[in-house]
Amino acid sequence: MSETTSDSAILEGTRRRLTEKQADTVDRLTRAAVEVITREGYAASTVRMVAAAAGVGPATAYTYFSSKEHLVAEVFWRRLLQLPEVELTDDQPTAERVVVTLRQVSLLVGDEAELAGAVTSALLGQDPDVAHLRVRIGREIRRRIATALGPEPDPDVVESFEMLYAGALVRAGMGYGTYAEMADRIEKSVHLLLD
């Protein structure tokens, strides 16, 4: 993804297109959300607390985010967009290309336990704005998997890896293992499916 595409996607909020000043406010809110969640834990965090940490009023925060879940989903979406593309080479085996891609995405918030748990909870929420972001996140992950599989990948294979990725992250979010352990499990599963 080019910088222009990435930059414009970040300026495009879930609810509307943002001006530069509005984008700055959203950026401050998303950075403050990570700080508050890390300090207070997801369950204790509120949009009001995040707004205070970002130096904006609660009404302003709610202008951009309908809920705490929406705010956390936006944090993950922005991080995913800013994640550099994995450098894949034609001489890499397909399984290795998929492993590298899925490991990178799987560990996106893996080192931040509170945030990782918050992302898992938020993305499972029913907020319509979260549902919108969930679709965008899913499309981006699908695109990355398809790219790793090579030209004209089998849609069923792409979907299988999407399900593998999602299942592993839910398992990590439920405490059945760390995100690093789930990335290792993904690697084993990819090799089972492709080798």
Rank of each mutant, 00 (worst) to 15 (best):
L124T: 14
S121T: 15
R134A: 15
G125D: 15
D129I: 04
S189W: 00
R139H: 06
S189N: 11
H132R: 15
A148F: 11
P151Y: 01
G173R: 06
A122P: 06
R143L: 05
L193D: 03
M174D: 10
V130I: 07
L115I: 05
G110R: 03
A166Y: 09
R143D: 01
P153H: 09
G138N: 05
V119M: 06
I137G: 00
P151L: 11
V158T: 12
M163Y: 02
D184C: 11
R136F: 01
A148Q: 11
S189Q: 13
A183H: 05
A122F: 02
E114W: 06
E114V: 07
Q126W: 03
A122W: 05
E162C: 15
P128V: 14
R136D: 00
A118T: 01
L115S: 10
T147M: 02
Y176F: 14
E187G: 10
D111T: 12
K188D: 03
E159V: 11
L108T: 07
F161N: 01
V158N: 02
V135P: 00
E152I: 08
V190Q: 07
E140M: 15
L123R: 03
P155S: 04
L192S: 11
D129L: 08
D156F: 10
V130E: 04
A122Q: 04
P155T: 10
D154C: 10
G177Q: 08
P151N: 10
D111V: 07
D184A: 15
E140S: 14
Y165G: 05
F161C: 08
A113Q: 12
Q126C: 14
L193P: 04
A146D: 01
P128G: 11
L169Q: 13
L123T: 10
Y179H: 15
M163V: 14
L115D: 00
V135N: 11
V190S: 05
P155F: 09
F161T: 09
V190M: 14
L124P: 06
R136H: 01
A113C: 00
A148R: 09
A146F: 01
A113V: 14
V157S: 05
D111I: 02
